[in-house]
Deep mutational scan, measured.
Amino acid sequence: GLPPGWRKIHDAAGTYYWHVPSGSTQWQRPTW
């Protein structure tokens, strides 16, 4: 699974990851 606080988001551009507490997003899968 993903580290705490991360969500996987799907949209028209593809899949990305959202860090809910900080509001940051990234294309790379977050690592622990």
Results as ranks from 00 to 15, higher is better:
residue 11 D to T: 15
residue 12 A to L: 10
residue 10 H to R: 11
residue 24 S to Q: 15
residue 22 S to I: 03
residue 14 G to V: 07
residue 19 H to V: 03
residue 28 Q to K: 07
residue 13 A to H: 14
residue 5 G to R: 00
residue 11 D to A: 12
residue 8 K to F: 09
residue 5 G to E: 05
residue 7 R to N: 06
residue 30 P to Q: 00
residue 27 W to H: 13
residue 30 P to S: 02
residue 14 G to D: 06
residue 7 R to P: 02
residue 23 G to F: 03
residue 4 P to L: 04
residue 2 L to S: 03
residue 23 G to N: 09
residue 26 Q to T: 09
residue 2 L to A: 06
residue 16 Y to M: 07
residue 24 S to M: 15
residue 30 P to D: 02
residue 21 P to Q: 09
residue 25 T to L: 13
residue 7 R to H: 12
residue 11 D to V: 11
residue 16 Y to P: 02
residue 9 I to A: 06
residue 8 K to Y: 08
residue 1 G to N: 12
residue 20 V to P: 05
residue 21 P to I: 10
residue 10 H to L: 09
residue 17 Y to N: 00
residue 14 G to I: 07
residue 6 W to H: 01
residue 9 I to D: 02
residue 32 W to L: 10
residue 19 H to K: 02
residue 17 Y to I: 00
residue 27 W to R: 15
residue 15 T to R: 04
residue 2 L to D: 14
residue 26 Q to A: 05
residue 4 P to Q: 05
residue 25 T to D: 04
residue 29 R to I: 14
residue 18 W to N: 07
residue 21 P to A: 10
residue 2 L to P: 06
residue 4 P to I: 03
residue 19 H to I: 04
residue 4 P to R: 04
residue 24 S to V: 15
residue 7 R to I: 15
residue 9 I to R: 05
residue 26 Q to H: 05
residue 28 Q to S: 08
residue 22 S to K: 02
residue 8 K to P: 07
residue 29 R to H: 11
residue 9 I to F: 05
residue 17 Y to V: 01
residue 6 W to M: 01
residue 13 A to S: 13
residue 5 G to F: 03
residue 7 R to T: 13
residue 3 P to T: 01
residue 3 P to A: 04
residue 11 D to Y: 06
residue 13 A to F: 14
residue 19 H to F: 05
residue 22 S to M: 02
residue 12 A to K: 12
residue 23 G to R: 02
residue 18 W to A: 07
residue 8 K to W: 10
residue 25 T to K: 15
residue 17 Y to R: 00
residue 19 H to T: 01
residue 25 T to F: 14
residue 27 W to K: 15
residue 18 W to K: 12
residue 30 P to K: 00
residue 27 W to S: 14
residue 27 W to A: 14
residue 13 A to R: 14
residue 30 P to G: 04
residue 28 Q to V: 10
residue 10 H to P: 06
residue 9 I to E: 04
residue 32 W to K: 08
residue 26 Q to S: 10
residue 31 T to W: 06
residue 4 P to N: 05
residue 15 T to I: 13
residue 32 W to R: 08
residue 10 H to I: 14
residue 28 Q to Y: 08
residue 21 P to L: 09
residue 8 K to H: 08
residue 26 Q to P: 01
residue 12 A to G: 12
residue 10 H to T: 15
residue 25 T to Y: 11
residue 32 W to T: 10
residue 11 D to R: 07
residue 11 D to K: 07
residue 32 W to S: 09
residue 17 Y to G: 00
residue 1 G to M: 12
residue 14 G to L: 07
residue 29 R to N: 13
residue 24 S to R: 15
residue 4 P to K: 05
residue 18 W to L: 15
residue 32 W to D: 10
residue 31 T to M: 11
residue 1 G to D: 13
residue 3 P to H: 01
residue 26 Q to I: 05
residue 13 A to E: 12
residue 20 V to E: 15
residue 27 W to L: 15
residue 28 Q to N: 09
residue 17 Y to W: 06
residue 9 I to Q: 05
residue 20 V to F: 09
residue 20 V to L: 09
residue 12 A to V: 10
residue 21 P to M: 06
residue 30 P to N: 01
residue 22 S to W: 04
residue 12 A to F: 08
residue 15 T to V: 12
residue 24 S to Y: 12
residue 24 S to A: 14
residue 24 S to I: 15
residue 13 A to D: 13
residue 30 P to H: 02
residue 20 V to S: 08
residue 22 S to D: 05
residue 22 S to Q: 02
residue 19 H to P: 01
residue 19 H to Q: 00
residue 23 G to M: 05
residue 21 P to T: 09
residue 5 G to N: 05
residue 20 V to Q: 11
residue 10 H to E: 14
residue 10 H to V: 14
residue 30 P to A: 00
residue 32 W to H: 09
residue 3 P to K: 02
residue 13 A to V: 10
residue 26 Q to M: 07
residue 31 T to Q: 11
residue 6 W to S: 01
residue 11 D to M: 09
residue 2 L to W: 04
residue 3 P to D: 01
residue 2 L to Y: 04
residue 24 S to H: 15
residue 3 P to S: 01
residue 31 T to V: 11
residue 32 W to E: 09
residue 3 P to I: 01
residue 31 T to N: 09
residue 26 Q to K: 05
residue 29 R to T: 13
residue 1 G to P: 13
residue 32 W to V: 11
residue 16 Y to K: 06
residue 4 P to Y: 03
residue 16 Y to N: 04
residue 8 K to T: 11
residue 5 G to P: 05
residue 27 W to Q: 14
residue 9 I to K: 06
residue 15 T to L: 08
residue 17 Y to T: 00
residue 4 P to S: 05
residue 30 P to T: 01
residue 31 T to R: 07
